[in-house]
């Protein structure tokens, strides 16, 4: 059988093929099924943008120009209070460090309380877990706002916010790590007649410590990122400097601070990658 050119495929042949292989041709229903998700998604996006007043975007030229101008034209740079700005950055780093440290220490205890193999009392375990769910369910920024209300403006609120949200997440990760350990080593320690704390110290900790350390390092990185914005609600750090300058309409300074924040975030990403590589590399031999 010789293959004819596609140009010689006439209506008769199409009809013949359609008769023998009807499903290889698309019906109206097939077309609807193919296009409906796209049409719905596009219609939804357009509809919702109109609902969200997308026309504002096209009326923003004047203010957008002002922002763009502030990006390049920096005025009065001698009076920018650089000390203030870099103190804010230092504060951000300090908040992340302290918050992560406290969160790690707290999770060391709470993690064991939430682990099935350490805490046999179901009721306690469940209560601890639900409590952790609530801590995690509320965003760090909300915690920041709450603590600003409770203890006032400043980095203390930020440290507490990081501590509380880390407690929720790290404890859960820690308890999962504890539940996944090798039971034989624990039984070995228990067989020596050790008390419950000695069992945890010599049976559990050596196994879970590497996991704990790598997770805490990871959280330290992500907290440094999020600490840059905690100040927006008044919880200390560079974010506070940023929002102050913003309210005072000093947009050139805002851009300077944003640039600093971006450099800080990229630097932290890079540094944390190196530290984790170094920590993992050391562990492997």
């Amino acid at each position: 059988m010789r293959m004819a050119s596609i140009d010689t495929v006439d209506a008769g042949q199409i009809a013949a093929v359609r008769a023998t292989h009807p499903r290889a041709f698309r019906t109206g229903l097939d077309e609807v099924r193919k296009w409906a998700p796209w049409v719905i998604a596009i219609a939804y996006v357009i509809g919702s943008l109109i609902y969200f007043d997308v026309h504002l975007l096209f009326q923003a030229s004047e203010r957008a120009l002002r922002l763009l101008r502030a990006m390049v034209v920096w005025e009065d740079m001698a009076n920018w209070q650089y000390a203030n700005i870099y103190k804010g950055i230092a504060q951000t780093l300090a908040m992340a460090f302290l918050g992560t440290l406290l969160g790690t220490i707290g999770s060391l205890f709470v993690g064991f309380l939430a682990a099935k193999n350490v805490m046999p009392i179901r009721i306690v375990r469940q209560m601890v877990r639900r409590f952790l769910d609530v801590l995690r369910g509320i965003d760090q920024l909300v915690w920041g706002l709450v603590f600003v209300r409770a203890v006032g403006l400043g980095p203390l609120a930020g440290v507490l916010a990081i501590f509380i949200s880390d407690l929720g997440t790290l404890s859960k990760l820690y308890s999962e790590a504890i539940e996944n350990i090798d039971r034989k080593q624990v039984e070995g320690v228990r067989a020596t007649g050790a008390g419950p704390f000695a069992v945890i110290r010599y049976g559990y900790l050596p196994q879970v410590l590497p996991v704990f350390i790598s997770q805490s390092l990871y959280f330290w990185e992500s907290n440094t990122r999020s600490a840059t914005i905690l100040g927006i609600v008044g919880a200390g750090g560079i974010g506070m400097i940023l929002i102050e300058r913003f309210r005072a309409q000093l947009y050139d300074q805002v851009f300077f601070v944003v640039l600093n924040v971006l450099v800080l975030i990229f630097a932290i990403d890079w540094l944390s990658k190196r530290i984790r590589l170094w920590a993992i590399g050391e562990k492997s031999h």
Binding site: F52, V54, L56, F246, I265
Partner: peptide, 20 residues
């Protein structure tokens, strides 16, 4: 790299308060 809330701050200034 830019935190969402920072971007939102800029957009709120440029196009006004609201979900957009």
């Amino acid at each position: 790299g830019v935190p969402e809330i920072l971007l939102a701050l800029v957009f709120v200034f440029a196009i006004g308060i609201g979900p957009l």
